[in-house]
Amino acid sequence: MKKLWRCHVCNDVHLGNKGPEVCPTCGARNAFVLSDRAEALEIIGEDHPVIGTPQEVVAAWRQFADQSPTVRLTEKDEEVELLSQGVLENRNTKGQRYCPCRITSGDLRKDLGLICPCNFTRQRTYREIGECWCGLFIKRDGT
């Protein structure tokens, strides 16, 4: 099971098999110490902003795609809007921003893999035609 880690310099929180060598927030090296759920939740706080509007969902997708050398967001704005509404519907009714083009199994551990963006690079559509299942993320030319 992945563990929680806390940067002892700036309280950056990380979930993973080990803490990052360099803290992505403050730059401290070898600064992560084993943490736990209660401590991590306390650091995150109750007032942490939610991604709760279609605009905020799309902004998160754009941030993800803009930093990626391999994928971009589709230019079909209407589809982006429809999908952003879908993931928010799913958050409201199923608890997470699940992909509106897949379907949950009811097994939470398994369904966490359906949160958008999912790990679409393993999907058949991405391998064969360079698109995630929904056509939201497209492989960049020449990659």
Binding site: L82, L83, G86, P100, C134, G135
Partner: peptide, 12 residues
């Protein structure tokens, strides 16, 4: 036909 209301391919 199993479809999703917010699935673009279903709409197409």
């Amino acid at each position: 036909w199993f479809h999703g209301r917010e699935c673009p391919h279903c709409r197409q």
